[in-house]
Design a protein around this nucleic acid. Structure first.
Lengths: 245, 245
DNA sequence: CGGCATGTTGAAACGTTTCAACGAGAGTGG
DNA sequence: CCACTCTCGTTGAAACGTTTCAACATGCCG
């Protein structure tokens, strides 16, 4: 469908900062090239650490997309707001993940700090400079975007056909990256119930009830407010896939 | 979140066909470079016309991603199927749009022909070859993927917080590309009700009821089965945004 | 220890789904 | 050309799950 205006590429090319500003980026900004690189040290002036307070807006949908960010600490949520004030969270970003990487001159979503957040940011001109000079970087970015698209389509699938309990189960499982299955694990997410609800497309009450239900059945546990212990991942998986109630 | 396995880039690089097969792609396959290019003529062996019958599977989720396709005629749907047999359509592709452009070696969704479909396809090795040799093409692909991601996030927003009537209204408006507002327009979509329902995350009955409701109120009309006339786009927009019932 | 934000639970209202029946349209063969 | 058939679309009524509104509990921070 690709239902967008259609001139984003040209805008991209005609960005305010021309691609010829060769000394714009030296080593510092190359963080963006690394998938899981370490934080660059030194005093390069092109990247900067920026911190945000809880619930602070990092950028707003429609604003000029001046920077691309990487999360160092905390969590960031990308939201889209409706006319009636309700919001949908389209993605969360955890440490080492990159957000705010846009093609149009304006951001397509709003980014907010979930808790205290520390980021590293790179100006768009610098990102564009690398696009033009480093042949490999675009491939890495394509791979990154491909993953995001895949995740987003998974999200669509979840919202389209899963019940509240299935959504909650799926949600926790997306954080279970490459563990030996059937091992219980703990999630220390800095997210509140409202954040989870807005990601799952549910009300806070329904989310809560689903959590309580899973707790009652000893599939998960919540020792603290923002800690989740998944006791029985395989059962949770069965629930998420609709193979168990 | 980017909840995927995490080794897709390496798989991408290590594709079966090495990038050095220089004469793999001459003019024909460069269709992929053009956003709205014309169909290449001649007898280049690297692209091929392929047609599919109604409801035929073009490729299956998990299969080797051997080709990238462009729609010439008809419509293609990308679906993800649940364990219980229900499906979610994550995207439609109409003429001139490209699908099956993957980073991993395997397709992430299943593609099916909605009606009779004519496509042009390009082998993955060729696509990869261009990635390595044409510096501009990756930028164009990034822009394309960025649009897809944006559309997908819009889809998430729709499924997360909109009612049946809002979803149907939003759906028709996504096809209204750059028209002077308030002008009624006609859509000649080759989609059946089930396809629309599966895209909107609704049942066919609910979709039908929403359509009937909009018809009764003279906001839309359905002269033929797969034709939709939007009589009052601004009213439809108000409904989609929750500003009107 | 208040005071306040956040989380949890209950009961009624609401919208969507389900199951069932019926109608309309397209294609085929008599 | 009509009648037949089959698929697809439409409508109705009950069942179901989520939302809403309300109250209460819990945790956190001054």
């Amino acid at each position: 469908m690709s239902n967008t205006s259609g001139t984003e590429v040209d805008e991209f090319r005609g960005a305010e900062q021309p691609l010829s500003s060769a000394n714009c980026c030296r080593q510092g900004c190359r963080f963006f090239a690394a998938e899981t690189g370490s934080v660059p040290s030194g005093s390069d002036r092109n990247w900067a650490i920026q911190t945000f307070a809880r619930n602070e807006t990092i950028y707003t949908k429609g604003a000029k997309s001046a920077f691309t960010y990487r999360v160092l600490e905390g969590a960031v949520r990308l939201t889209r707001v409706f006319a009636d004030g309700r919001r949908q969270i389209v993605n969360f970003y955890l440490p080492d993940e990159i957000f705010g990487f846009e093609f149009s001159d304006t951001y397509t979503s709003t980014a907010e700090a979930v808790g205290e957040v520390v980021t590293m940011r790179c100006p768009r001109s610098c990102v564009l400079y690398h696009s033009a000079t480093d042949p490999d970087i675009n491939l890495r970015r394509l791979a990154m975007l491909g993953k995001s698209l895949n995740a987003s389509e998974k999200h669509v699938t979840m919202l389209g056909h899963q019940s509240a309990r299935q959504r909650v189960a799926s949600f926790f499982l997306t954080f279970d990256k490459g563990r030996s299955k059937d091992d219980s694990f703990m999630l220390d997410l800095p997210l509140g119930r409202q954040d989870i609800a807005d990601y799952l497309g549910l009300t806070i009450e329904t989310t809560c009830r689903a959590l309580s239900d899973l707790k009652r059945r000893r599939i998960i546990d919540t020792p603290r407010r923002r800690q989740i212990v998944v006791r029985d991942p395989s059962c949770l998986k069965a629930i998420a896939e609709g193979l168990a109630a």
